[in-house]
Design a binder for these strands. Sequence first.
DNA 1: CCGGCATGGATATCCGGCAGTTACAGTACC
DNA 2: GGTACTGTAACTGCCGGATATCCATGCCGG
Lengths: 297, 297
Amino acid sequence: MDIRQLQYLVALDELRHFGEAANRCHVTQPALSMRLRQLEDELGLTLVRRGHRFVGFTEEGERILAWARAVLAAHDGLHAEASVCRGQLVGTLRVGMVPLAGFEPIPLLQAFAAEHADVRFELKSLSSEQILAGLDTNRLDVGFAYADGRHERKYQLFEVAETTMGLLFNRHRWRFGRPALDWMDLESLPLGILSKGMHFRQSVDHALQSAGVALKPLVETDSVEFLVQSVSAGLCCAVMPLGSGLEQRDEALELLPIADSHTLAPLCLATRRGDPVSALAEAFQQFVRERVSPDQG
Amino acid sequence: MDIRQLQYLVALDELRHFGEAANRCHVTQPALSMRLRQLEDELGLTLVRRGHRFVGFTEEGERILAWARAVLAAHDGLHAEASVCRGQLVGTLRVGMVPLAGFEPIPLLQAFAAEHADVRFELKSLSSEQILAGLDTNRLDVGFAYADGRHERKYQLFEVAETTMGLLFNRHRWRFGRPALDWMDLESLPLGILSKGMHFRQSVDHALQSAGVALKPLVETDSVEFLVQSVSAGLCCAVMPLGSGLEQRDEALELLPIADSHTLAPLCLATRRGDPVSALAEAFQQFVRERVSPDQG
DNA sequence: CCGGCATGGATATCCGGCAGTTACAGTACC
DNA sequence: GGTACTGTAACTGCCGGATATCCATGCCGG
C-alpha cells in the first residue's frame, strides 16, 4: 500500500470524478484508476461503486477513507514538522470559522502570514458542529467555533472572544440616546433576520428566546449582504454581533450593544488533541494565544 | 516519501542497528541505508547521527520519528479496518499490563484469540505510566493500567477491577481464624516485600502509608518468584493482590483479604481516543466490556 | 606498539518490476 | 451519432533492492 493510492482515494472522494481527481494528483486518469483497483485488490475489498461513471463509495470504502485521511494527516504532519526543523513554517493551514462571530480572524491570518511567508490558508465558513467534525476527520487543522468545557476532552480550546449581540440600525431613522439597548427595545422595531438554518440565526433565536422576546421579522434573507443593505436603507434593524465591523460599511449605520446578550458559548480556537501535534496548528495556536487575550478579541 | 522509509526509520530506532533493522524489514542493509539517506535528502534534515556505527538520532530525528509512528499506526489501522470489512480480525494487538494487578488478562486474551484465529498478541509488562505513554506514542494498542478520571480526557477507560490487597502467608505457620485481616495485624508479622522501584511496591507503600502502618520488611527482593517461595517456606508473609491466583501455587499458601485495602486507582482497560478508532483495539475493548463487569474482574 | 581480523556501515553496479504514459475500446446518456 | 467518462492494452523509464566491494574503527595477541 502506498501513500499515493490514499491520496488518489481522497481526491476521488472530494471531486467525485476520476479524471478530475487524477488531475489534482498530477497523473493521468488511467494511472489513478489502476492504482485504485490495485488498492482494492490488496485490501480484498471493493471500495468504489463503479458504473459508467463514478457513483460513490461502498460502505467499506467510506471506512477505509477515514483511515486514509488519518494516514495522510500524519503524513502531512511529518512534512510540516520537517519544515519547522528546517527553521521555516510551510504548508497549508486549513481553517474553519463560523461566520458573523463578532470576531475577525482575517487580521490574525494576515499577521501570521506576514511572519511565515510560506504558509498558505484554506479558509472555510462553517458552523461550529461542522468545524468540530472537520477537525475529527482531518479536513481542518484549526477552527474558530463556539465550544465549551463539554468539548475539552476531544479538542484543545482557547477562548478568543465572547459574542455580544448588538443592534445594527440606520442612525438617520432611529436614535436611542443610550449607550446600550435592551431586548425589550426590539419588540417595537421592524427587524431583519437571516433565514432559518443559518448558524447566526440560531444564535439570535436562542438569545431572543432566553430574553423572552417574540420575533416578528419584517425581512428574512439568506444573504448577510442583503440584510446589511436593508438596514443601511433604513428598511429595518438587525441583530448582529459586536466587533464584526459591520457598522463601518456605511456612515449611516450604527451598532449599539444589547445588554445581557452574551448568552452564547464563547468563541474558541479549537485544535485537535493528539500526539504528535501538528506543527503548523501548534504554531498558529501559540500565535493566537500571544495576540489575543480573552475579553478583548 | 514512502511508508517503507518510515518503517525503516522506526525499525532502526527499535533495534539501533542498521543490519538488524534491515533484517526485520526483510531487506539488505545497503537498501535500508540508502533509503534512509534518501529520506533525509527529501526532508532536508539529518535524522541519524552517524559514526562508524549507529550512534543515535538527532533532535529532529526524534521528532520526525514520532510522526513516523503516527503514520504507521494509521497505516496499520487501515489494514485492520480492511480485515474487519472482510469479516475477519487479523493483526497484532499490542497489550501492556501492570504486573501483579490482581487481575489476570491472559484468559481474556485466550478467549479473544479463540474467537479470532488470526489475531496475534504482543504482551508487555509495564508500569501504568509506561502503558499510558506507550498508547500515546503508538507503541501499544491497549493496556491494563491504573487510571482514573484524570486520564479520561486522553484515553478511553473501562474499569475492569478494583485492586484489593490480601496477605499471603503459610497456613501451617499462621492461623488467623477470620475471613479478613486488618492492616494493624501486619505490624507484628515478618513481612516480605518487593524492591523499591517496582510498581507493586509503590502500591503497597501507598496502602501502608494511608493505613498509617510503618514498614519493617524482613525480606526485600526484586523477584516475585523469590518472594512467593519465601512465603511458601514460612519465612515471611507478603502483601499481594487478591485475584492473582498466587495462593494456588502451593497448598501451604493462603491469601486473606485485608479490610479497606482498595485505596488504589481502579485497574482500567485503556485505549487511545481518536478518529478513526483502531478496529482491533475497538473489538478487544468491546469483547472485554462484554466479559467483564466491574467488581467481579 | 603494531599487524591481522571482525564488525558495521557506506559505495558502486546491475537488474527487475511497476507506476505512469499514450492510444484505444466500451458504454451510457443526450 | 456525438459526447463524456471509465476501463484496457502495450510500452517505457525510473527506482528500489540485491550482490559485491570498500572503508573506518575497535579489539586482540604478539
